[in-house]
Design a protein around this nucleic acid. Structure first.
Lengths: 126, 126
DNA sequence: AATATACAACGAATAAATTAGTTATGCAAC
DNA sequence: GTTGCATAACTAATTTATTCGTTGTATATT
């Protein structure tokens, strides 16, 4: 999967949020100072070329949709990160943040709960 | 903390790996096709301006050191990511990957172990 | 039908990042 | 001291990304 540039990512974030939208609508979700209409229009067309977005035409106007979901993108994005910074070990990454106390006890307990049920689920399968 | 561009990040990865080095040494750690000496030299000086690197001068040659550690940088980097893609919830992020089965049972068990001991440690403090 | 409006498409202008050539300086070898 | 080499500093060239004005066309409005 190709990477998103900063400007492209901003547009994708809006599209992921609103699910679908015309350029005008995407623009509305930008904070001030909003970019020009044409700026967003260009970026959205680049995103289409890159395969992140598609559109449905209503006459002459286009309604844009994400093709790559936020989950899909975040998956590859984080994989790269874990690979580059934690020699591809998710465990190392989580441990690091657990030890760094960037995770609260409450969060850790939640995570453990979910993992327990996942582990159970996995083991059931055998 | 400023962000690293792709080229800058590559140089930092080398510096983090080798701890310190002259431009020549950094260059050696690049895969083929290696960039030109001057390219690395320029990037390292940009990194210095940005505050990621410092140097010790031996006469006319400079030995460069990371000032920002890989851990520090990965911390802010991941925070941004978790913020943008998981509405700032580390838990949501980890759960997502646990459910997506990108984490093996063994890894999950390891993570749980570490979290348990961290939770214990935290609770002791009160 | 003429005019106004809205929009996509195009492309030009600018900015940022990357790459590497050129230059100047110090040091070593002779 | 002169020559050659290594290196930092500077700068130019190139590439990539960003921004937005301009244009043309379709549709709506009168």
């Amino acid at each position: 999967m190709r990477e998103l540039t900063r400007a492209e990512e901003q547009v994708m974030q809006v599209l992921w949020k609103i699910k679908k939208g015309f350029v005008k609508e995407i623009l509305e979700h930008f904070d001030e100072p909003k970019p020009a209409y044409n700026t967003v229009s260009t970026i959205v067309r680049i995103l289409q070329d890159k395969g992140f977005v598609t559109h449905k035409a209503y006459g002459r106007t286009h309604e844009y949709y994400p093709v790559v979901s936020k989950n899909e993108y975040s998956k590859t994005h984080l994989s790269t990160f874990v690979n580059d910074y934690f020699s591809n070990s998710f465990e190392k990454m989580v441990s690091f943040f657990a030890k760094e106390k960037s995770i609260s006890v409450k969060e850790m307990e939640e995570i453990m709960k979910i993992m327990e049920s996942e582990v159970k689920k996995q083991k059931m399968k055998r």
